[in-house]
Amino acid sequence: MNVTALSRATGLIYNLLVVELLLLLTTVPTLAAITLLDHDVSNVPLVAVCAIPLGPAVSAALYALRHGDDEPATAFWRGYRGNALPVLKLWLPLLAWLTILAVNLANFSSAGVPGWWGVLLAAVAVAVTLWAVNALVITSLFTFRTVDAARLALHFLPRGATLANAGVLIAAGGVTLLASEAVTALLGSLLAGALLWNSRAMTAAIRDRFTA
């Protein structure tokens, strides 16, 4: 490994560590809820409320990993301040919608509805989550109106990045099931970096076609 490659690797590790620390710091309510609350469907709405800080925090992490080559902490807080409100305009409706879907799926057996309805609800939840990943990346890296960011996220949903991001989310879910939510949280900056890497074709297309 030459000096340049070593320097880049060291810089990447440093950025990931700084972003991870700040990501954990800004998601304390979410981490506390996940750790302390019982895994019961009755707690889903409370978990959703505690997850509100997660959207702006992940957005700031995406921004910092994209723009914070030399000063990741400065880039993180700049991204947090600049993106918090636009992200929340998408994040809050998403949490509400996913909460409704989760409660319905958890009580599916007692609802007396056909089995295909549960499959449909699960498919909708997956599609909405993958759309949200696109929207989060777009809102974190570009300045669009909320409706335009939502439309672009939907436009790029059938693209290859969606499948790759689905793999990242499945891996995160697997780590959570096999280990714990705390381990997944400690991998937060790596997961954000993976989403950013998977979305590079989408962000390049948006930059070339939809920005001046």
Rank of each mutant, 00 (worst) to 15 (best):
L22R: 01
Y80L: 15
P114Y: 04
L22Q: 04
L24S: 05
L95R: 06
A51R: 07
L90G: 07
A127V: 15
V128H: 00
V49N: 10
S59K: 04
D38W: 08
L121W: 07
I100M: 14
R66P: 10
L21A: 08
T139D: 12
L90E: 03
H39K: 09
A123E: 08
S109G: 09
P45V: 10
A96N: 02
W116V: 11
V49M: 13
C50V: 07
L62M: 11
A33W: 00
C50R: 04
N43S: 08
V124E: 10
S140A: 03
W91V: 11
V147P: 12
A64M: 09
W97I: 13
A61H: 02
L130A: 10
A64F: 04
V19M: 10
A64H: 03
L22Y: 02
I138W: 10
E71D: 15
P86C: 02
N83E: 03
T30G: 10
V19W: 08
E20K: 06
L88P: 00
T35C: 08
L23C: 05
Y63D: 00
L17R: 08
W117K: 11
H39I: 08
F144M: 14
Y80A: 13
L95I: 10
N104P: 06
L24A: 04
T139K: 12
L25Q: 07
F142W: 05
A64D: 03
A75T: 01
A51F: 08
L25C: 10
A51Y: 04
L88I: 09
V137H: 01
V47D: 01
K89P: 01
G55F: 00
L25A: 13
V133M: 04
T27F: 00
A48T: 02
L17M: 14
K89T: 03
L62N: 07
T146W: 11
P93M: 09
V58L: 07
L130T: 02
V87N: 05
A75I: 00
A75G: 03
A111S: 14
W97D: 11
D40K: 14
V124Q: 05
L24D: 05
V49T: 07
